[in-house]
Design a protein around this nucleic acid. Structure first.
Lengths: 369, 369
DNA sequence: CCTCTCGATGGAAACGTTTCCATGCCTTCT
DNA sequence: AGAAGGCATGGAAACGTTTCCATCGAGAGG
């Protein structure tokens, strides 16, 4: 039993042809009761199991779906993958997972291999859907697929948070709390169209609310020292009272860094995140953020691919404003006017927030250190 | 080009035999320069790519590894999977991911299918390695494999945190801080040998330190209301001053629940977690916990499987005490003696801990509600 | 009693590769 | 000049399935 038994072994042991074995085991054709028993006995004795690879060659199907995301160390993608596989597994499909680590080269290469392996479908987050080589290749091969967390180019369907609208909502939130000067904090701004969408939406939202254009603080590597960068950023852009971080991790890191800079959050600086990871509501202050549902999105993308495979009706993608909602939190508070030492007079007493108080003074005396 | 081109199409277009095409493309045999050019031209024209399934059938190899974990919604497993795939991908292997959702039935079924699909190896976390049907099957089929986060039965290798030693270390930490009565909080105690290992280690550690045997609080479903359960638990087990949660999620949830019960953490109740997720150090108070490195473990398990496939020397698994370390945090503080009103006389002045004091009075007046 | 039909069964082709082996030719050595 | 060897190439088997088609026997209907 070094080599696993094949259908031929079973046929031989049962004293019949391979066709009969196939018919019995697949229940795809007539067989006498006695024959059935003999085959089943042989199967048991040999511990036989069909080889899916022989089967795939013949049937042109693998019951396998490719799933491509940047990284599952990020819980947003991890949840989405989980959601997708929770759909696939009960449907009889297994999932080939690729984490590209935000590398377009790996993305292209891995997807070619997935297609060579003849996956029946693909769920994927690409770095840039407009230029993605991999995506073009998928189309040319006509593999059923669905995007995830990407803006869908024409002829594609995508399950995604409407980043731009969500970021606009964040601008509204800042406006509602009387913030005027804000910053946008992003990691890997260039390799992620998500971050860019959020930035654009935020800029637009700020403009719509009559706020200043947000300053951009971009980090390239996650191991750069955020505290130093943040300090320099606030020094270079005086007057900033709020920061929108392009994800919750960054937001929490920013809170920590702000504290290291002896800034009070939210007293001196309000911070809003994006994604709505569960921890956000466990920290003090709780994190104001955009809440999303990655699991639902992953599941939806999975259903879409299955429907393409089966030729059934595709599930409806959620409307933009169903893909997120704003969650208020202690990290974003109304800005209260006080003696503002940058010359701008805080003349208007905010009617909507009678309890508004000011942060401890002497914030950000940047030349002290 | 509905159906992708096969090697035969290439051969025909290049005017040669399929064997020549195979040799040219795989660089596995001689070919004239002119022939090479013709073949390459045909490949380009047809956008040909080998079918891995045909190849697999012939070569008895799939360049695919199965990876089985309970759920990647849990960042511990997500990180481990990421670590494994970071090893596999550069080595030319892709990863078939299965999340069993802690269901032994799914586990067995999925692993059978993985083997039918002829994966070249397996990295897996099973629910119980001693009784796992799937594991037995893997052995009978002699598939290279490595356990992850499981205690290794004989003849298996496993990359895992030494749960028992780590839990013992937690008991030491409580002892160092003069706690005597503790509780152990676990989710899915029955379906996870990890939780049981930790419980055993904790019980043993408490005994070693002369503490009371910890009380067990077990939650079955993650959606049960922890606050109610915790309240009842503390009422039923008076005198508890510290809780060891079997993972950081639970620990953070417990902190929140304690607050809802108007208990101060750590003032009234110290809490220690397990896993060392990044967030633990971002919350206030920071979470005392056992820090582990799931990514390293996943990577190690991956390397082990690769070494089995290639017949090279297996990497050395870390020694038990290299698999974790204790991280102090604000959620665990020394217990201070004070007027204790539960009748127990604090008569014996503990020689080893002269500074021992009691907790603030009237905590948990259990009949008040 | 003969034919027709139908159930049971086996042989063989096909799926897309790789690889063994045979063939033919050209070079090179004796 | 003849033999030997090496290179370039193609045919075909093999991998493990499914499925089409043919065969065979038996029961039914005329």
């Amino acid at each position: 039993m070094r080599q696993p038994a094949t259908i031929k072994d079973v046929a031989q042991k049962a004293g019949c042809g391979v066709a009969t074995v196939s018919r019995v085991l697949n229940k795809t054709g007539p067989a006498s009761a006695e024959m059935r028993d003999r085959v089943l006995a042989a199967v048991n004795e040999l511990d036989f199991q069909f080889s899916e690879v022989g089967r795939s060659l013949q049937s042109n199907t693998t019951r396998t779906i490719g799933c491509v995301v940047p990284s599952i160390a990020n819980p947003v993608y991890a949840d989405a993958v989980q959601g997708a596989q929770d759909v696939f597994l009960p449907a009889g499909y297994q999932t080939l997972l690729i984490c590209t680590n935000y590398d377009a080269e790996i993305e292209t290469q891995a997807i070619r291999t997935l297609i060579a392996k003849h996956v029946d479908g693909l769920v994927l987050t690409v770095s840039d859907p407009e230029t993605s080589e991999a995506l073009a290749f998928i189309e040319s091969r006509q593999v059923p697929h669905c995007l995830l967390f990407n803006m869908a180019p024409t002829n594609h369907t995508s399950w995604s948070v409407h980043d731009q609208a969500a970021a606009g909502r964040v601008a509204d939130a800042f406006a509602e709390n009387n913030h005027e000067r804000t910053g946008f904090l992003a990691l890997k701004f260039l390799s992620s169209d998500r971050a860019r969408q959020r930035y654009n939406g935020f800029v637009e939202g700020c403009a719509r609310n009559g706020m200043h254009k947000p300053a951009l603080l971009e980090i390239d590597e996650s191991n750069e020292d955020l505290t130093d960068l943040l300090g320099a950023f606030l020094r270079d852009n005086p007057g900033i009272t709020g920061i929108f971080a392009s994800n919750d991790f960054l937001a929490l890191a920013a809170i920590r860094s702000a504290r290291e800079l002896s800034l009070d959050v939210p007293g001196d600086l309000s911070i809003v995140g994006f994604d709505g990871i569960g921890f956000g509501s466990m920290v003090m202050p709780s994190l104001a953020t955009i809440v999303t549902d990655p699991r639902m999105l992953g599941g939806g993308a999975g259903e879409t691919v299955l429907s393409m495979i089966n030729g059934t009706a595709a599930p409806q993608t959620p409307s933009p404003d169903q893909t997120f909602h704003f969650r208020a939190g202690g990290s974003l508070v109304p800005l209260v006017a006080e003696s503002k030492d940058d010359g701008k007079v805080a003349a208007f007493p905010p009617s909507s927030n009678p309890t508004r108080k000011m942060s401890k003074s002497n914030r950000r005396d940047q030349n002290e250190t």
